[in-house]
């Protein structure tokens, strides 16, 4: 049953990921990316981490993708939309990518790996918070400073010069 759900989510994730790359209109690829991110959140639920799934949906789908769509709507994309998507000249690149991904998948499947913790390993919000605010307190603070710096930088860079 779990395998069936995994295959379902994985199929939709790969299909929408391909759509992000191949679709011509940036708005459509943003919507495809939203679908892909929601599928990944569902996979996080399958990995017994509903908290991370919620974080993924809130931050990625709720904040990042809305930001993307805002920028696509602010900027005039009509000329860019008209540009064709010709990977004709990029056949070499596509070939290299195919070879690399075949190598990676083969490597992953040939490596012996365990199934996962059998005895109900359930990371709760409490256990995540306990580790985050004790062992990883310093990286946490650094990340908050990075966020603040990014906030200020984004406003300063995007502001219209007088």
């Amino acid at each position: 049953m779990e395998k069936l759900f995994f295959l379902m989510f994985a199929a939709v994730a790969i299909a929408s990921g391909l759509a992000v790359v191949t679709v011509r209109n940036p708005v459509h690829s943003a919507l495809a990316l939203i679908v892909c991110l929601i599928q990944v959140a569902a996979l996080f639920v399958l990995l017994r981490s509903p908290f991370l799934a919620a974080v993924q949906i809130f931050i990625y789908v709720g904040a990042v993708m809305v930001l993307f769509l805002f920028v696509v709507l602010i900027l005039d994309m009509r000329k860019a939309v008209l540009q064709a998507f010709p990977p004709v000249k990029k056949r070499f690149v596509v070939g290299v990518i195919l070879v690399l991904s075949a190598q990676m998948v083969a490597f992953v499947f040939l490596t012996p790996m365990g199934l996962g913790p059998a005895q109900g390993w359930e990371p709760t919000v409490e256990s995540i918070g306990r580790v985050l605010f004790t062992k990883y307190l310093f990286p946490f603070e650094v990340v908050s400073v990075i966020l603040l710096a990014a906030l200020v930088a984004a406003i300063v860079i995007a502001k219209e010069r007088q």
């Binding site: 790359v21 996979l43 596509v94 690399l100 499947f109 790996m113």
Partner: peptide
Amino acid sequence: MVPVTWYIALSAVLFMIGAAGVLTRRNVIV
């Protein structure tokens, strides 16, 4: 129980799709 290998293979495939997008698309947003 889903084998962990499947997750890692899926992530490899998604990573390569993203890499293909970076290398072949010319639109900054994409």
